[in-house]
Design a protein around this nucleic acid. Structure first.
Lengths: 345, 345
DNA sequence: AGCGCACTAGTAAGCGCTTTCTATCACCCC
DNA sequence: GGGGTGATAGAAAGCGCTTACTAGTGCGCT
C-alpha cells in the first residue's frame, strides 16, 4: 500500500501532526525538523491522501467549471483559461479543474452542481447562457446558494446575474452591445433587408443578442426582419439560413447568433448559389480562433474569452477581488472582415 | 451545517449503516426501510460528503483527463467525448472529469499525475503526444505505474504505448498511415517538390507523421524535401510556411503537422501572394470541425477523435473491455477537399 | 533566582462515511 | 417443537488526515 502520514512520521521520528504542519506550511516548524520530514517524504515518495485531507479540513482543492460542451471552442477557451488561472499543479499547491459538460440541459446542470457540492469543491465557475424561465433560474440559484453556504466560492462567467444576491461574482458579456454594433455596421453599409439567425429560444444569450439587433434597427426606425431560432452550432446555422431565405428570398444580410452558426449559414448560402458577401453579407459573434481563416473571413463581435475566463478563475480562487458590486460587464468589439460588404445594388 | 448521514439516520429511525446501504445500493434493504430512508434524504436535502465517502471506501469517482491544452479543439473534442462517456451525473452515479492542461510540459504532466494520484482518481485518460526521450517516458511510466498500483485504471489515447506493461489500455492513432496517404495523394497529383511543416521535435506524434510522409516519398524513390519543425498551432504554421519557402521557393506543396498549422500556412502563402491550391497545395491532419469551412477547405487526414475519446472513456470506467492485447490502433481517413490540386505546370 | 513568554512538538479528538462482524427475527422442515 | 436458514439491521472499528489543546523547552527580564 501507499505510504501514509504515519509512515512518514515514523521515518522522520516525529508525530503525524508535525508532518502535516510541514506539508501544509501553516504552522511554524523548526528548520531541522522540517528538512528531516521533507527527506522522509521524498524517500517514501509520499503523496497526501486527498479525500482524507479534504474530510479533515472540510474543504477540497477542486474547482468546478460548468460548460455546455467542452468540445465547443467557445467553452474550451473559457475552461482552458479558468484552468490555467488555477495555478501550477505543484506538489504543495495545485487546484484541479473539474469540467462538467451540461449539454445545455437544465437537469444536468443541477446534477453537476450537486456533484460539485458533494465534492465540497473550493469554487465553481458557471458559464454559458441561462434559461430564461424563472422556475429554472430559481432552481439553479437554490443550488448555488447551497454551495456558497458550504463555503464554495461561486463565479458566473458570461451569464446573467442571479436574481438574488448570494455572494456570487458575476462577469457578464455585453451581448446586447455587440449585436447592436454588428447590425449598425450592416445598416451603415446600406443593408435594409436583414435576417436574424437567433440562438435557441428561452436562453439569456440568444435573447440579449436579438434584443441588441432589434435596438439597432429600432434606432434607425427600421422594422424587424425575419427571425429564425436555431441551436448554437454549425449544422443548425446551415438549416437556419435556408429557412430564413425561404421566409424572405431578398435578404441581403444574415446576422447570426455566433460564429459557428455563421459558418453553417455561409455554407448554406454557397450551396444555394449565393456568394458571401457579394450577394449576402453574414456576421458572427464571439470571434473564435478560426473565424478569421474561414471562407470568407468572418465579420464578428469579439468576446475576450481568454481574459474573461482567466479573471473568473482568479476570482474563484480568491487571487483577485470580485468586481465592485459583484458584477462586471465584458464588452464586445466589432471586428470587420470580408463576410460583410454593401448590398448588391 | 449541511446534513450528515447521522442526521438522515436519526430522521429515518435507522442506523447510519442502513442509510449508507440504501444510498449505495450494494446490500439488501427491506423496501419499507428503503423508502423511509429515501424520504429522509429528500426532506433534509442530503448530499453525500464525497471526501468522507472516498476516504472510507478508498476510491473516488473522479476521472482525470490529461490534455495539452483544453482550448485546442483537438483536445477539447477528446476531453468532451471522454467526459460524455462517463455517464449521467445522476444523484447516485456520476463520475466527474478532472481535466488537466499540461501545456505540453513534461513537468506539469508529472505534477498533474501526482495530483490525480492524490485524489485517488478512479481512472486516468492521458492524451497527446509523448516526449521521445527515454528519460521522460520512464518518469511518466513510473507515475502511471503508481496509479495502477493504487487501483486507478489508466488509458492512453492517441499516444504511443508504454515501454512496459503496467496494465494500461492504449488507443494509438495511425499517424504514420495518415501521413502516408496524404503524401501519396500529393504525389499522385503530380507534386515533386513537397515541403514538410512538422510538429515540435522530440514528440512521438511529430515523428510518426513525418516518418509516414517520408515513407511515401521513399516508396516512390523520391528524395526528402525541406522540413521545418514548428509547434502545433496556427501562428507557428504561419512562420513555418515562410521559412519553408525560403528554403525552397519552388515548392508546389506543403504538408502540415495538423490542421491548425495548415491554416497558418495558408494565411502565410496568401500573404506572400500565392494562391492555394493554384500555386501551392496544402494539407492538414486531424480534420477539425472547421477545417471544411476554412479558406480553402482543407484536404486532410481525419482522425475520429469523438469515437476514440468515447472509447477511451468507456475503457476507463470499465464499461468496455480494453482492446485485445491492451492496444488498438485507430486509423486515419484521407479527406480530399480543395486545398490540394495538381501543381502549376 | 524566579517567572513568564515565545517556540516547538506531541496528544488525541474528531471529520463523515463504509463495511465487517454480529444480532435479531421469522420461518420452515424433519 | 427445535434448530438450521435467510433476510435485515445495528454496533463499532477504522479510513488518513487536521488541528485544538497541552507540554516541554530555553531565554530574557526584573
Amino acid at each position: 500500500m501507499a505510504a501514509t502520514l504515519a509512515d512518514v512520521a515514523a521515518r522522520a521520528g516525529v508525530s503525524t501532526a508535525t508532518v502535516s504542519r510541514v506539508l501544509r506550511g501553516n504552522y511554524p516548524v523548526a528548520e531541522a525538523t522540517r528538512s528531516r520530514v521533507r527527506r522522509a517524504v521524498a524517500e517514501l515518495d509520499y503523496v497526501v491522501n486527498g479525500p482524507a485531507s479534504a474530510l479533515a479540513a472540510a474543504s477540497s482543492d477542486l474547482v468546478g467549471v460548468l460548460v455546455h460542451d467542452i468540445a465547443d471552442p467557445y467553452f474550451g477557451i473559457l475552461a482552458g483559461a479558468v484552468q490555467e488561472s488555477l495555478g501550477e499543479p505543484g506538489v504543495d499547491g495545485g487546484r484541479l479543474a473539474v469540467v462538467c459538460g451540461t449539454r445545455s440541459s437544465h437537469e444536468r446542470e443541477l446534477a453537476c452542481l450537486t456533484l460539485l457540492l458533494r465534492q465540497r469543491a473550493a469554487a465553481v465557475v458557471i458559464t454559458g447562457s441561462a434559461r430564461d424561465d424563472p422556475e429554472a433560474v430559481r432552481a439553479v440559484t437554490t443550488r448555488l446558494r447551497r454551495l456558497t453556504e458550504a463555503g464554495t466560492r461561486v463565479v458566473l462567467c458570461g451569464r446573467p446575474p442571479l436574481p438574488e444576491d448570494i455572494g456570487a461574482g458575476t462577469l457578464t458579456f455585453d451581448n446586447r452591445g455587440g449585436a447592436r454594433k454588428l447590425t449598425e455596421h450592416l445598416l451603415h453599409l446600406g443593408h435594409r433587408r436583414i435576417g436574424y439567425l437567433a440562438g435557441p429560444r428561452g436562453r439569456s444569450t440568444s435573447r440579449h443578442r436579438l434584443e441588441g439587433h432589434q435596438e439597432a434597427l429600432a434606432a434607425r426606425g427600421d422594422a424587424d426582419g425575419p427571425v429564425v431560432h436555431v441551436s448554437f452550432d454549425r449544422a443548425a446555422g446551415y438549416d437556419g439560413a435556408r429557412a430564413l431565405l425561404q421566409k424572405d428570398p431578398r435578404l441581403t444580410a444574415v446576422v447570426c447568433a455566433n460564429d459557428s452558426v455563421a459558418l453553417g449559414a455561409c455554407a448554406a448560402l454557397r450551396d444555394l448559389g449565393l456568394q458571401v458577401p457579394r450577394d449576402v453579407s453574414v456576421t458572427g459573434f464571439v470571434d473564435l480562433p478560426f473565424s478569421g481563416d474561414a471562407m470568407p473571413p468572418l465579420t464578428t463581435a469579439r468576446l475576450p474569452l481568454q481574459q474573461a475566463g482567466a479573471r473568473a478563475g482568479r476570482i474563484a480562487t480568491g487571487a483577485e477581488e470580485p468586481p465592485p458590486g459583484g458584477r462586471a460587464n465584458v464588452s464586445a468589439e466589432l471586428i470587420v472582415r470580408s463576410s460583410t460588404a454593401p448590398p448588391p445594388s
